[in-house]
Design a protein around this nucleic acid. Structure first.
Length: 478
RNA sequence: GGUGCGGUGGCGAAGAGGCUAACGCCGUGGUCUGCAAAACCACUAUUCGCCGGUUCGAAUCCGGCCCGCACCUCCA
């Protein structure tokens, strides 16, 4: 089975073949840090977190780069509003960005380049484009000439004529073509500025991604991702700049995620229908939010409804319960693979293999996380069944350990399992709860149900659920 | 106007020519159990926006229609 990816450039599913065997290079457009992230902003980073985990699972060595556009009109505006420097705004919201992504269990990428650290690289590329006749200088500004790149429009599927007709903004009449975009622009008073051959100024919006992607990943890297609104003009312009400069292809696969809507409309600060990650995370566990978002294929729009979160929490809890139960069932159990497996054990192994295969088939099909989640629940049902079918010892313990490993491996790709944190305090708490549970067992043995129920009720009020099972008392957090 | 995407049970959401239309939540009945919880089992869409067509066979392909959304401007 091979991985197939939907490529925006060809508008088709293509088999994934990496540029370098065994290695995958990824560039995802990061945030402009001038405000807190809402969950719509977070979707691409969550999606790519899973893609990265899956590629790693498949054995690829992954190099993942995500930029911060830390100089930009929006940042400058915010800085002026607050009377602080643009750098201060950017630093603050980059910190907040990490805070939010950590809460969602999104792993750090390999490189987080910032535009302000790459001004000289940007100037060099702009210079090269001028030299090759793809850009021109106009009063301290440098513009990219779209007509100099015959393939302009190939990513977004638009022609220059379409674009001219649909243009909704006033254009600078001095530009050679209305769609020509700025590579370098002069800074106004009190704006961040860097010296350049064309006078003091700062980079335009699109050039930084070309520069940083090429610097850290090289020409023809594997994946370039981002929200589907970036297809035009941002990514279109990146293609134009990069390929004009390189003379060779920029990116192998363009991957764009759909939007998160709210109330049937795109979630956006300008619409005012946003749910910030930090607000959501106060109410719901990060993995439950992941589960909710990953239940929809990444290219489909997702209409976010807060009312649906409780259902997501319950679904995710099923997985957490199983994870806990597996840990407890296997704790202290000796795992010694027998020389010969019984037919029943073989059958169980086949079942596990079947689930693994189904999971991979789902993920290989353009990262179909919704289907993969379904497979995880299929596996969960079989493991729950196995858990309930008899004592966990000998060969059954070995089989169950295999099942647990698979469950954690697949769940880990989605970031839905292996998320409970361990700490010294927690270990102590575990022991204390265990002690209380044992005392209650004594009460039950005496048929003192009044005491037993009181203990259970009081613990329940504290958020600790006791469950009496055939295998003894078991507890978990609500 | 141009370019894309989508309408599947009470809700969310996979499936894209032929297995019982996944999976999760909710609901009902049952097993287990002192009770509860968890888990498991069974039931819950003769039907996939509407109307035609192609086909032995369509939720899946084609045509028309009705809705909804996005992009063409900063935007994940």
């Amino acid at each position: 089975m091979s991985l197939k990816v939907y490529d925006t450039m060809t508008k088709s599913l293509r088999e994934f073949v990496p540029r370098d065997p065994g290695k995958v290079s990824i560039y995802v457009c990061g945030v402009t840090p001038y405000n807190f992230c809402h969950i719509g902003n977070a979707r691409p980073f969550l999606v790519w977190d899973v893609i990265r985990r899956y590629l790693t699972y498949k054995g690829y060595s992954v190099r993942y780069v995500q930029n911060f556009t830390d100089v930009d009109d929006k940042i400058i505006n915010q800085a002026q509003k607050e009377g602080v420097s643009a750098l201060e705004i950017a630093d603050r919201y980059i910190k907040e960005y990490f805070h939010d992504m950590d809460a969602l269990g999104i792993q750090r990428v390999d490189v987080y380049p910032r535009v302000t650290d790459h001004i000289s690289d940007i100037i060099a590329l702009v210079d090269k484009l001028i030299e090759k006749g793809h850009a021109y200088v106009l009063d301290g500004s440098v513009y990219y000439s779209v007509e100099s790149f015959p393939e302009y429009g190939k990513l977004s599927g638009r022609s220059l004529d379409d674009l001219k007709a649909g243009a909704r903004v006033e254009v600078d009449e001095r530009k050679r073509h209305p769609m020509d975009f700025v590579l370098w622009k002069p800074s106004k008073e009190n704006e961040p500025a860097w010296d350049s051959p064309w006078g003091p100024g700062r980079p335009g919006w699109h050039i930084e991604c070309s520069v940083m992607a090429l610097k850290y990943l090289g020409p023809g890297f594997d994946f370039h991702g981002g929200g589907s609104d970036l297809i035009f003009p941002h990514h279109e312009n990146e293609v134009a700049q990069s390929e004009a400069a390189l003379g060779t292809p920029f990116v192998r696969y363009w991957v764009h995620n759909g939007f998160i809507n709210m109330g049937g409309e795109k979630m956006a600060k300008s619409v005012g229908n946003i749910t910030r990650v930090r607000d959501l995370i106060k109410q719901y566990p990060g993995p439950a939010i992941r589960y909710y978002i990953l239940s929809t294929h990444y290219r489909s729009p997702l209409d976010f409804r807060l009312e649906d979160m409780p259902a997501a929490v319950r679904g995710w809890k099923r997985l957490v319960n199983l994870e806990d139960n597996l840990e407890r069932a296997l704790a202290g159990t000796e795992i010694k693979p027998p020389a010969d497996l019984s037919p029943a054990a073989r059958q169980f192994q086949d079942l596990l293999a079947k689930h693994r295969q189904a999971f991979e088939t789902a993920m290989d099909d353009d990262f179909n996380t919704a289907q993969a989640v379904g497979v995880l629940f299929d596996l969960a049902r079989d493991l729950n069944r196995y858990l309930a079918a008899g004592a966990i010892e000998g060969e059954r313990a070995v089989m169950l350990a295999d099942g647990r490993d698979l469950f954690l491996s697949l769940g880990g790709v989605l970031g839905l399992t292996g998320t409970s944190e361990r700490s010294a305090d927690k270990a102590l708490l575990d022991d204390l709860i265990q002690l209380v549970a044992e005392l209650r067992e004594d009460a039950r043995a005496r048929k003192d149900y009044a005491t037993a129920d009181r203990v259970r009720d009081r613990l329940s009020q504290l958020g600790i659920i006791l469950e009496d099972t055939a295998a003894g008392v078991r507890w978990r957090y609500r």
